[in-house]
Structures are given as structure tokens and as C-alpha cells.
Amino acid sequence: QVGMRQQWELGQALRRRYRDFLSDTYRRQEIFIRSTDCDRTLMSAEANLAGLYPPGGQEMFNPNISWQPIPVHTVPESDERLLKFPLAPCPRYEQLQTETRHSAEYINKTKENWQFLQMVAKETGIRDISLESIWSVYDTLFCEQAHKMDLPGWVTPEVMTRLKELKDFGFEFLFGIHNRVEKARLQGGVLLDHIRKNLTKASNASAHQNLKLLAYSAHDTTLVALQMALDVYNKIQAPYASCHLFELYQEDDGNFSVEMFYRNESGKEPFPLTIPGCQHKCPLQRFLELTDPIVPQDWEQECKVSSSMHDTELFVGLAVCGSILLLLIVLLLTVLFRIQSQPPGYRHVSNEGEEHA
């Protein structure tokens, strides 16, 4: 119920923020909600909407229920290509992750925490625990802690702090550390492209848009992927019920500007985010220019590993195989030569004895 309450409070906060923008009552033309096809994100969206649109008057279909049904749209998880990160399959992204694992920062981080990782592996029974997988340990313990459950004896406050630090690093590993911009094009840039198109469409006066609010209910990795693409990520895992806001304003001169806000703490107003290279109130065209390099032109094509890399790998593979084959031939010829050049020893004596017999 803690998560439900957090989302309900977020919905109420959005109602207060946009009370002069959204209609007092739910109008389906004004809002569209999209969620990943996961129970928890669908439930989060529904709890949020309960706070955003509390029913009143004719909306009360049952006087004992202060709630009204509002549609939440989704697609099957197998078809999800917008909100569930990391997006897959993407061979080029996997190649970048392999390169990241060989970066100095990743190697040094692993060395610094090797003994701690081994301790966690021993206490949890999880084999091959790493900087990439330790998030699952922290998540489990954090949830147990949030629900007032007793933690294992080895989980001290210091251990929880260190687990959180490593989890934050693991999130950064997914979308940064090495070649952040290219990773962004293959990951968070996909969602950003969708957001950019909606902002552009909303700024088109001839489109006569009734839609006022487009909301996504997704995951912490979704938010990290988006913020890493925008280069505004604070390197701290997003807490539950976090919210990244994009607001489009029309100025007095008719031009449009974009403002971003981030709400990561209940009870406090969202704080402003500024994309590097622009002021907080960023002109829409400038916003589009700055984000253009991190938006894929053809995601499927960019996810392919370039043929030159394939050719190089093939050449190296053939060279290695050729070298091994040559070594085997030389070894075989050497053995044959030694057999042929071996002195007769006492074999002639044995043969002569056999002839006299």
C-alpha cells in the first residue's frame, strides 16, 4: 500500500499543479496514459489517476467508492519498444556494453569492491554476483525495509549504503560511462524522439489538438535512460513515484519553449532541470537542435554491428585458424622427419637372428 499511496499523492500533486490547465472533470480527449505491460506499472498508473481525477457529482457511479475508471493503454511486453529499457535486441548496444566492461572506470570499480561483492555472494548464495546484478539484492532488501520487515543480520546500515552506491553505478553502466551519446541513440533517445514529436505536434496550431497531458507509467530504468540521453541524470537511482515533467509553453511572441522538472521527493515541488547548452526555459527549436544528435534516425539499422567490424573479426578469426593449422603442419612434419632419421639401433641384430633361426 505504500507504493499506491505514493502514486495517489503524485496524482494529487499533478492536479494541484495543472488545476488551471486540465478540466476539473475527466475528459478522454485531454489525457492519454501509456504503461508498460507489468502489473506494478499498470497499478501505479491507476493509483495515480485516482489522485489526479477524484470523481464528483455525476462521475460518482457508487456513492461508497471515491474512484472512477480511466483507461490505461499498453502493449504486450514482447512488442514494447518505447518504455522498457534496455531496449533489445540491439547487437551494437551489447557491443558497447562489452567495451564498457573493459573500461578503466568499470575495472577499477570492480577491483575496489571485489571483497564486498564476494561477501554479498556468500551471504545471499547468489553466484557470479557483479556490479551489473547487485541491484537485485539492494532492491529486495530495500522493499523489505520499506515494509518494516526484519533484515538479515549481515545487512547493516553501512552495507545498505554501499549496496545503494553500487546499484547507482550499475544504472550508470547501462546508459553511460563509455560512449554515452551512442548508447543514448540506441536507448533513451528512442523515448526522447517520441516526446519530441509530441511536443512538435502540440506546437502546431493548425493541428487543433485537444490532448493536454500525455503520461507514461514505466520503470526506474526508463527514467534513467531518458535523463542520461538528456545529460541531466544526477547518478542517483530514482525513488518510487518519481516524475520527469516536460511542459510546453507558448510565449507572447507566438513562439514555443520547453521547461523540464523532476519530482523525486513527495511533499516537495518538482525542481527545474536544464539541458546543457540552453537555459531552463529553452526555445522549442533550440531544444530540438540540442537533442537531435541523441535521437536515432533508424534504430534497427543503427543497432546492427557494422560490416567493417564483422570483416575485422572474420579476418582475425581466419588468421588465428590459419596460424594454428600451419603450426600443426610444421609439428607433423617434424615428427615424421624424426621418425625417418631415427638410427636402426639393434633392430638389425633381431632381424639377423630371425633369419638364422
Rank of each mutant, 00 (worst) to 15 (best):
N204Y: 02
H208W: 01
H178W: 10
A215E: 08
N204V: 00
H178G: 00
K183S: 07
K183I: 06
R180C: 04
L211M: 14
A202G: 08
H208E: 13
V181D: 14
L191P: 02
H208M: 13
K197I: 01
R185V: 04
L192P: 01
V190Q: 06
N198T: 04
L213F: 15
N198H: 15
I195T: 04
N198K: 13
H178L: 13
D193Y: 05
K183Q: 12
A207Q: 11
S206F: 00
N198G: 08
T222D: 08
L192G: 01
R180W: 03
S203H: 03
N198M: 07
S203N: 08
V190A: 01
I195K: 10
S203F: 04
S206K: 05
A205L: 04
L192N: 01
H178A: 02
L186N: 05
Y216A: 03
A202L: 14
L214F: 14
L186G: 08
T221D: 06
H178I: 03
A215L: 14
L191E: 03
I195P: 07
A205T: 00
L192D: 00
N204C: 11
K183C: 10
L213W: 15
L213M: 15
R180F: 00
L191S: 07
L192T: 00
L199H: 05
A205S: 09
S206P: 00
V181P: 00
L211P: 06
N204S: 12
V181Y: 01
V181F: 04
S217E: 04
T222E: 05
T221I: 06
R185E: 01
A184P: 03
K183G: 10
K212P: 08
H194Y: 15
K197A: 14
L213N: 07
T200Y: 05
Q209W: 02
Q187V: 02
L186M: 07
T200K: 11
G188R: 07
A205N: 01
S217A: 13
H194S: 13
N179R: 06
A207R: 14
K201R: 13
A205W: 00
H178V: 09
L211N: 09
K201A: 13
A218T: 04
H219W: 09
I195W: 08
H208Y: 11
D193E: 11
L192C: 02
Y216W: 10
N179C: 09
V190F: 02
D193G: 15
S203R: 02
A215P: 07
D193F: 07
A184E: 04
S206V: 01
L192H: 05
L191G: 03
L186A: 06
R180T: 08
D193N: 15
H219Q: 12
A184N: 06
T222I: 02
L191F: 09
D220F: 06
